[in-house]
Design a protein around this nucleic acid. Structure first.
Lengths: 231, 231
DNA sequence: ACCTGAACACCGTTCAAGT
DNA sequence: ACCTGAACACCGTTCAAGT
């Protein structure tokens, strides 16, 4: 057990720096990455609030305090999970838009569907990204940057649709917030189990997202006076 | 200290059953209610996740285990806080609708404003109601009932607007889900601090809610083919 | 009946100590 | 440098014991 991981360590040192650092019996090469993976695995199976540092350490065969060599504390680890989540998220949204544009479908509607679909298939990531587990967001500027990047995908799409005169003009930020709120709300309500309780039948979430998009886009296509934002 | 609360106890026994039960030094009359109040107070000041049973017990001058005489466990206490929250919530929504109807304002828009306003002024309640702190919702049927009651306020308003032909017909449940998602999403994003980061200025949340309502209602006033729900 | 103290099985985090 | 074991200050919950 010990000797095997020691071999791994030496193999990495040789491959990496061509100079073997001495003695220390490292239990895991690239512990940092392994910690994130193990954490994500636990979150997937048992939820964010069930995540325990002691457990991930035990599963990696590592001391409980080894984690603190790589992360300041528990929330820093969660911030890292969220960061990875936002990367996947932005990618998913962007590719949905690209697909829609090349197939003639509505980019906004397809982005909405992709948004909620991401939240459903990556519940662990999504809950970590928007839940309260991380705490002080200001503390992780790289995380905020990645989140802003995902928001920019939505914002850019709105601006392009405005340029093509498919939706009303004006400040795109409030419009983005309204659209964001809709899909985020659908995702959060479904994750909280709020949508399944009324009406015995299991809900068709994708259909609901499409309904939401069409209502919203119908509203956004009108240019009437009701759409003037109060300032 | 002890003698004072003992007096309280005796006073209560005499007033209640006209027959004094003996001896026991009860530290608090109506402990159950006091526990809920103390819990809510802590949640208000420090958030749901900072709530500690040991702390509420200490603040009430009661043993750490006294709580278990009144609640099965911690989440049962939180469920009780949420229950109270849903009662206040329904009341707030209903009175906003009534006010709008008698003043000629749009009931749906005013309900939306009241919804988000409730979430902002009662953040502790709202987070407990829709956060993950409670856990198994199925375990508290009375809570689910009260939540359904609040949802019914929204549903009834939609049906009445449909009868008055002010919005499109059809199954009101999906429409209710879409509207709910919008206001819930706005509230959750604001509570998570997501709306304030883009654009330096502090956001006018009420204006954003009104914008949301108007876009949605503009969409809902159209009767075009895009609004047929897939089934 | 209602409440208590001691105890159990957990947490995250720190820190001197090892190699 | 990287990792460890022991320790600290917390949790929720149980349970035999008091009155």
């Amino acid at each position: 057990m010990l000797t095997l991981s020691t071999l791994f360590f030496y193999a990495r040192v040789v491959a990496g720096k061509l100079q073997r650092k001495p003695k220390g019996a490292y239990h895991h090469p690239d512990l940092e990455c392994a910690l994130v993976d193990a954490a994500l695995q636990t979150i997937r199976r048992e939820g964010v609030e069930a995540l325990t540092l002691r457990d991930v350490a035990a599963r990696l065969g590592v001391s409980r305090t080894a984690l603190y060599r790589h992360f300041k504390d528990k929330s820093a680890l969660l911030a890292r999970v969220a960061l990875e989540g936002f990367r996947l998220f932005r990618q998913a949204l962007q590719s949905a838009i690209d697909r829609a544009r090349s197939s003639g479908a509505d980019p906004m509607e397809e982005m909405g569907v992709a948004y909620v679909a991401f939240a459903m298939t990556n519940q662990s990531h999504y809950k970590t990204m928007f839940g309260s587990a991380i705490g002080d967001w200001e503390q992780y500027p790289d995380l905020a940057l990645e989140a802003d990047g995902a928001f920019a995908v939505l914002l850019n799409t709105i601006v392009e649709e405005q340029r093509a005169s498919r939706i009303v003009g004006g400040d795109p930020v409030p419009l983005a917030h309204v659209i964001w709120a809709g899909v985020h709300g659908l995702a959060m309500l479904e994750l909280a189990g709020c949508l399944d309780r009324n009406g015995a039948a299991k809900i068709d979430l994708t259909a609901l997202v499409r309904l939401h998009s069409r209502i919203l886009l119908d509203g956004l296509r009108r240019t009437g006076s009701t759409l003037r934002t109060k300032r």
